[in-house]
Design a protein around this nucleic acid. Structure first.
Lengths: 226, 226
DNA sequence: GATTATGGATAGCGGCACTTTCCGCTGTCC
DNA sequence: GGACAGCGGAAAGTGCCGCTATCCATAATC
């Protein structure tokens, strides 16, 4: 397959493919003559993965590059790859530490203990959770933090489902790729489902049963996100 | 309060505050003389909201502007505001329609029916779910779509918790802001929790019980994201 | 043999979120 | 009352990011 066909199949413009090759996101084609190269279905697959992570997952090209290189390097332990993926999912925030962040970290640690989760409270995920808590408080919506346990309870079966899906993979590269895709695109999938569920819950509470629900008139119309 | 103090309190540089005012994200201060203005706690709160939506929520300034203007306009029905927030949460994708997207839309509609959700299958949330499904398939991970029902089941209690939190608000502006914050920051919160839960589930399966789990050696090390 | 596609290299572009610079005025401290 | 940092307002500049355009010599295709 030449670059034009690869472009047609993947929907990615030729100059963009060249650009990805230059950036090291996509291996160069096999040269058959000084200015002719051939690409295979592996290139196509890789290209689709890049676009999925970029468009739907919202990762930067730099983050995608790191993830892909980690996926490809067989010496890289699997958990390293996941660390990279996890770290790059959220942009590096790093605002001033301060006591608020310390408190939030403490709360994250308490949550983990409360739920008996075996996870590092100070890893990237714990850290970004702490940052979300701080942001909520700073924005004057600290009350939202009370939902942490409800959210955590919902996250458990999701994580189990993800693990189950990943567990069915055998080849290392497949497995790692599954985890990355699951982590990144799964987030987008859940987000969309959550918004759909909002619309339903809202319709159920404010719409269906006749008399308005807990929020009274003010909340009328919390629908239509579906 | 003058702009310097507002800057100190919020952690946002003075030129950036000026920039937000120019962009219409933040109302100008009350002029006390031709080149002196005073800002109040409302400005501070608004500023914190902007930074939360920007840094943690990952919204663009343009999207934040739309949301804020919708929040402020009392004529705007609440569900319109939510529509704006929901629409802007995911960047406008719009790739070629094609039959894959049609199939995915159909699946979304079926999911809604299966779960008895009262939500518009073709609204922004349904549409972005369909796009995620297409992206998963295109990336060669169509199997992940099998988890849709598990994800949907987990989204239900989350949506109920969100609604419950929002339902406690009375004032319109408070309510709308809660919904926006909950939708945007709640997504980040769940994402972090999900990654923590991954680490736990992985530790539980591959680490704790001695002999390796379903994935065998290949999956060793799906930990450390916490 | 004309047209089109290709690999490779370099330069340019448009959007975004600021940041810098400048101006003339003001509030404040000594 | 004089020095000086801070202010509001406007305009131009910056840095990064994800491409896109242009050019060249060569290769494939009709």
């Amino acid at each position: 397959m030449r670059i034009g066909e690869l472009s047609n199949r993947s929907g990615v413009p030729v100059p963009t493919i060249k650009f990805y090759v230059r950036e090291g996101l996509l291996p160069a084609g096999q040269l058959t003559s000084p200015n002719q190269a051939s690409y295979d279905s592996g290139h196509e697959r890789r290209l689709r993965l890049i676009r999925a992570l970029l468009d739907v997952g919202g990762l930067s090209l730099a983050a995608i590059g790191e993830v892909l290189r980690a996926i490809e390097d067989p010496a890289q332990p699997v958990h390293e790859v996941l660390g990279v993926a996890a770290k790059r999912l959220t942009p590096p925030q790093r605002d001033e530490p301060g006591p608020e962040l310390e408190d939030a970290r403490e709360e994250v640690a308490e949550l983990l203990e409360r739920r008996g989760w075996r996870a590092e409270a100070h890893g990237p995920a714990g850290e970004s959770l702490a940052e979300v808590i701080v942001a909520l408080r700073r924005a004057g919506h600290g009350g939202f933090v009370e939902l942490l346990d409800d959210y955590a309870a919902a996250a458990e079966p999701v994580a189990r489902a993800d693990l189950d899906y990943v567990g069915r993979r055998v080849a290392r590269e497949d497995l790692v790729e599954s985890v990355v895709v699951g982590t990144v695109l799964g987030e987008a999938m859940f987000g969309a489902l959550r918004r759909l569920a909002h619309a339903d819950a809202s319709a159920r509470v404010y719409d269906g049963d006749g008399a308005g629900g807990p929020g009274g008139d003010a909340a009328e119309g919390y629908v239509g996100q579906g």
